[in-house]
């Protein structure tokens, strides 16, 4: 039984292959992402998760294969192209400006300005209101005027996610969002990710934390050696199965049968 997918695919990765030197990092890899879903992307180190993310986010161009966004073929030559198409990635460094405040970071690069536009006079009041609405929309109480420098890791992660909401990103990739967070913060961030789910966006969470994955994801995609070895709804799999897939790959991949007895 597959997950009911009422909407059309948002992002289709088809037969993507990329080689670095003699190593095949991704091997005829195909995967589809649907809006309204949170997909966990898992795999051991070296499985190819980062490479796949690099291709989707435009940092790397595949040697073979194609990407389709909303049914249209796309080619991302740079991360800028990807961002322009609504594909946003939040890397572990978060790329927030410490000396600015929450609203300054949410709008960084796209600040609303008062007329006349050439002066670039920041519409602070409107940014404050909009930031508060965004944070409320994520279920968070956070003062939009606080400097990033004074915020905890979890709060910063939430600001980075709020930025994606403001940008109306269609494909949102979160790279290890709960890494280095304490339990309380981790739960808060996971709840925000769940609140972040929406019919207009496909969320991809790269993670190695199985507890987080089963908490937040609708679907798990397991990678090994540059291939997809498992693609299951989280409701129909278990931590054991995921670990087995990550470590040994799928039985079909190995051309064998599951053990009996």
């Amino acid at each position: 039984m597959i997950l009911a997918q009422p909407s059309a695919p948002l992002l289709e990765v088809s037969d993507v292959t990329i080689r670095f030197g003699g190593v095949v990092a991704l091997d005829r890899l195909s995967v589809t992402f649907y809006p309204g879903q949170i997909v966990a992307l898992v795999g051991a180190n070296g499985a190819g998760k980062s490479t796949l993310v690099s291709i989707i986010s435009g940092a790397v161009i595949p040697d073979e294969g194609s990407l389709h966004l909303r049914g249209q073929p796309v080619r991302f030559r740079t991360p800028k192209d990807a961002r322009a198409a609504g594909v946003e990635t939040v890397y572990q460094g978060l790329a927030l400006i410490e000396t600015l405040d929450v609203k300054g970071n949410i709008f960084l690069g796209r600040e609303p300005v008062s007329q006349p536009g050439w002066i670039g006079w920041l519409a602070d009041g409107s940014m404050e209101r909009r930031a508060r609405t965004l944070l409320d929309g994520l279920g968070v109480r956070l003062d939009a005027s606080r400097k990033i420098r004074g915020l905890s890791g979890g709060q910063r992660q939430i600001v980075a996610i709020a930025r994606l909401v403001e940008f109306e990103a269609g494909v949102c990739i979160l790279d290890e969002p709960t890494a280095a967070l304490g339990v309380q913060e981790r739960n808060a961030v996971l709840q925000v990710i769940k609140n972040f789910k929406s019919p207009d966006r496909a969320v991809i969470v790269v993670s190695h934390d199985l507890e987080d994955i089963f908490n937040v994801a609708d679907r798990v995609v397991v990678m090994r050696n540059g291939r997809i070895v498992g693609d299951r709804p989280t409701a129909e799999t278990s931590a054991d199965e995921i670990v087995a897939l990550m470590t040994f790959g799928s039985y079909a991949e190995r051309g064998g049968e599951p053990p009996r007895g």
Partner: peptide, 24 residues
């Protein structure tokens, strides 16, 4: 303190790469 120019100056001085990724 109040214009985009000033804000970008502060952003670049704090983390030029993050500023660049934001499209500055």
């Amino acid at each position: 303190t109040k214009t985009r120019f000033g804000r970008y100056t502060i952003a670049i001085g704090t983390d030029a790469e993050a500023a660049r990724r934001s499209g500055i």
